[in-house]
Nucleic acid binder design. Structure first.
Lengths: 169, 169
DNA sequence: TTCCGTATTGTTACTTTATAACATTTAATC
DNA sequence: GATTAAATGTTATAAAGTAACAATACGGAA
């Protein structure tokens, strides 16, 4: 999956293409790390990639049930736990929801922690690189004697489209 | 309430003193803004200040009930909504919990969004100023065409005490 | 291959967190 | 004091997440 144009991460693009490439990358990453991407785990990831937005666990569960797969909450939560632990899916704390990672580690198999942009108007979510901010946050924490292990950075506001609507209409 | 020494925000201090000063500041701020700090709202804030840590809504509810006050979930959630809206209490997304603000707006009545340091070991939480990082995060979001309205920044890791224990014991 | 131990999934039941909807009370303003 | 809006009380339920144990599938050793 190509790195999204930073100015257009809210824009549409070829979902099917990006979906298949993401699946392949995750599959490769699992193979390299001897992780088991079981059918259930793969299916949960696919559902997230297909929807291409943040989904609640119970929404995913419903989708699984529609397909005849077994379905109780722990099934989904366990698959999500695996996917989140290995960085293939992100959890949005503010929304109690999950989203497939948009730029899976290419070859590095390293988890990364992004910045999430959550639109207050249309509820769309974009994932952007945290970049140098991650280190700055760690340094800020370090100044208080705190050792940072992971970060949650979520920004709420207006996406380009909704901002435009407010300004024009 | 004095601004905490940045290097000691996890340290103990005179809770009773800081509690009373915080109540007074919130009370003043409400008066200036024509907000109604009702007995219920004041009591919920006091409970949070007394505990001096992050508490779940139901934990607060239980405390209220012990005191004979009426108690159903909406009671607490509504008080918390008021307190959070006006910046007297913060919500910790990662913990589904609430914490009294440690450095209430002094005279400015402006909400501020801090950085939270959550200890993975002892679960203590410290509130630190986000400082210039807030603007940097907004700028990062702005580069994607996004208008930031509010931020969630929570760092998980080890507080000074727990870090010390790991290193020494 | 067959057996064994471990990882994964299935299943039941439950806990925790949060909110909708409407009744009642309290408070501010005229 | 009557009117209206804000706040609280109350009932019921939705939404999110987990504990505990049973059944199954898988990966490697004998």
């Amino acid at each position: 999956m190509a790195m999204p144009d930073p100015e257009n991460i809210f824009e549409h693009h070829d979902h099917r293409q990006c979906r298949h490439e993401a699946m392949r990358q995750v599959s490769d990453s699992c193979a390299r790390q001897h992780l088991r991407l079981t059918p259930l785990r793969a299916r949960v990831l696919e559902i997230l990639l297909e929807s291409h937005r943040a989904m609640g666990a119970y929404e995913i569960l419903e989708r699984l049930r529609e397909e005849g797969q077994a379905g109780q909450p722990p099934t989904v939560y366990r698959a999500l736990e695996f996917l989140v632990t290995h960085g293939f899916v992100h959890r949005l704390e503010r929304l109690n929801a999950f989203m497939a990672c948009c730029h899976v580690n290419r070859g590095t198999d390293k988890r990364h922690e992004p910045l999430f942009l959550i639109c207050n108007s249309c509820r769309k979510v974009a994932e952007a690189p945290l970049g140098v901010l991650g280190r700055k946050i760690d340094r800020q924490a370090g100044a208080m004697g705190f050792v940072a292990q992971s970060r949650v950075v979520e920004v709420l506001g207006l996406c380009p489209a909704c901002r435009g609507e407010l300004e024009n209409g």
